[in-house]
């Protein structure tokens, strides 16, 4: 308790340095959140796009019931596959007619059904890699009763590139910001320590051990981080809560489909506390008392 009191008194004495560092930590954490939010939503969009992805297996006209069952079973055995649905020749033609009912005359002279039966495969999210899809397509194509396999290879590669790109850029950016905020805490604590060198020396001469001397600075670093976190929380509430979710979002369609995960509203607090404490710990660990 007395540690907290003397930490607060010490912080008040250096209020300008502390205010500056709280502001930097707050801004840093807020940018960090915006970046996290962006990556989160990019990922979300990409995985939604993945749901739309399907692979179509065109079948030979002469395929038997057993042949079909065997084929379906073999495809289902692949762990990436979520659902398998069979579309008969008739169903395919029906679909086509429905889609082109304005041009029904095209079908008048048609004798027999030229469309093949097919199997439509949908995949589990997260488990879909373009290489795996390519491999699966090659395997299926080699199976008996299969005429052809078609899927949006380029589409899949595109999504994949978005996800990995967003992830690695996001992680690099987040790491850089994290290091930046950590450095602010680190150097603030270091400055505070050197500005109180007289006091530190006196404590040491009175027989205080290293951690007795360091403890108030650790408390200060943690409080700085926490205050910065609080500031970032406040900014998040007013920007995301008011500006986005309020009037602005409904007029910009894209924003309406974005996710606002709860963590962006409370994460700055523990993050600030953790970064502040860690920064102080690193700063003090390197100081000889």
């Amino acid at each position: 308790m007395s540690g907290l009191r003397s930490a607060l008194a010490g912080m008040w004495k250096e209020k300008w340095i502390n205010l500056l560092s709280v502001l930097s930590i707050g801004v840093g954490l807020f940018i960090l959140l915006v970046a996290l939010f962006t990556v989160y939503n990019l990922n979300y969009f990409a995985s939604k796009l993945q749901d739309q992805f399907s692979m179509t297996v065109y079948l030979d006209d002469g395929i038997s019931q057993q042949g079909l069952a065997r084929l379906e079973g073999a495809i289902k055995a692949n762990p990436a596959v979520r659902t398998v649905s069979y579309i008969s020749k008739d169903a395919a033609l029906g679909e086509l007619k429905k889609a082109m009912k304005d041009s029904a005359y095209l079908f008048e002279g048609l004798d027999g059904n030229p469309l093949p039966a097919s199997i439509e495969i949908r995949f589990r999210r997260d488990n879909l890699k373009s290489e795996a899809a390519q491999e699966l397509a090659r395997q299926i194509k080699a199976m008996q009763g299969v005429q052809d396999v078609q899927y949006g290879a380029k589409f899949l590669e595109g999504i994949e590139r978005i996800i990995t790109g967003a992830r690695s850029a996001g992680i690099a950016f987040l790491a850089a910001l994290l290091v930046g905020v950590l450095f602010v805490c680190y150097s603030t604590v270091k400055i505070l320590f050197y500005r109180r060198k007289d006091e530190v020396e006196t404590l040491s001469l009175l027989g205080a051990g290293g951690w007795f001397i360091r403890a108030p600075f650790l408390v200060e670093g943690s409080l700085l981080g926490l205050a910065g976190g609080l500031l970032a929380c406040f900014a998040t509430y007013s920007v995301f809560g008011g500006f986005f979710l309020g009037g602005f979002a409904s007029s910009v369609p894209v924003l309406r489909y974005m996710l606002f995960p709860a963590f962006i509203f409370y994460m700055p607090l523990p993050a600030g506390l953790f970064i502040g404490f860690t920064g102080a710990l690193i700063a003090l660990g390197r100081i000889r008392i």
Binding site: S204, L205, L206, G207, A208, G209
Partner: peptide, 12 residues
């Protein structure tokens, strides 16, 4: 050294 100093009172 801190242990030594805690055995001693100093009027600086």
């Amino acid at each position: 050294v801190p242990g030594l100093r805690r055995m001693i009172g100093v009027v600086f």
